[in-house]
């Protein structure tokens, strides 16, 4: 676990030293959400009805924005090659990088989402479910996104390719994330949706590191 902690610390340190990345993701999320009241008009009922969907779709796009850099910097400067030759299994290293990615994108998005929900007149009863769903769903975005980032490593126009690969895989997270938040806002039970999100998280925690590590080895060969 020593290697896991070392890599997580390094990636967090790099994220804070280089600063811009976290701020960009949060700023993109906030701006994109705030565009909706301008686009569809200020009708509170309409905004409240689409609020959960808008928040989730925008969060997906914001997370996607930062994925391209997940392995690319390490690939370019030779670090990835060196990392793949460390005694720590590559799967564990992938988990560490995903954890760092979530802490610098998913977590800030989850923290700012309730504020933006306010702008969209989201129903007060839905907040706990919205936050819980984001806490369960955003790590899945990092884990599934890592597979796409590893597969597109070194490709030309990797960013576009990455969206085409990853966005369809995000659909289940989107469906259950929105369903959980909306169910609570409508006074219905949100627990089944949250459980399904938890199942998605458990599944991707177990499987995504293997797939990502395999794709990284392929890229390095």
């Amino acid at each position: 676990m020593n290697g896991f902690a070392a890599l997580l610390t390094r990636d967090l340190r790099l994220a804070f030293r280089q600063g811009g990345d976290v701020a960009n993701v949060v700023a993109f999320f906030a701006l994109a959400v705030i565009l909706f009241p301008f686009g569809v008009g200020p009708d509170p009922d309409l905004l409240a009805r689409i609020a959960a969907g808008v928040l989730w779709v925008t969060a997906l796009l914001a997370a996607l924005l930062s994925l391209e850099r997940l392995f690319d910097a390490d690939f370019q400067d030779g670090s990835l090659e060196a990392l793949s030759l460390m005694p720590v299994p590559l799967e564990i290293q992938v988990l560490a990088k995903c954890a760092a990615h979530w802490l610098t994108t998913g977590l800030p998005l989850t923290i700012i989402a309730p504020l933006l929900a306010l702008v969209l007149h989201f129903d007060a009863a839905g907040y706990p479910a919205l936050i819980a769903a984001l806490l369960l769903g955003t790590p899945v975005l990092s884990l599934i996104g890592a597979i796409g980032a590893a597969l597109t490593l070194g490709a030309r126009r990797a960013g576009v390719l990455l969206s085409l690969l990853v966005l369809p895989l995000y659909i289940p997270v989107l469906i259950f994330g929105v369903a959980a938040s909306e169910a609570a806002a409508l006074g219905l039970e949100s627990r089944p949706h949250l459980l399904l999100l938890a199942a998605l998280l458990a599944g991707s925690l177990a499987l995504a590191p293997w797939a990502t590590a395999a794709a990284l080895r392929q890229a390095l060969e």
């Binding site: 390094r10 340190r13 790099l14 030293r17 280089q18 400067d77 030779g78 670090s79 090659e81 060196a82």
Partner: peptide
Amino acid sequence: HQEAVKLAL
């Protein structure tokens, strides 16, 4: 031949 050095560290 690449040093694997992180410039920000």
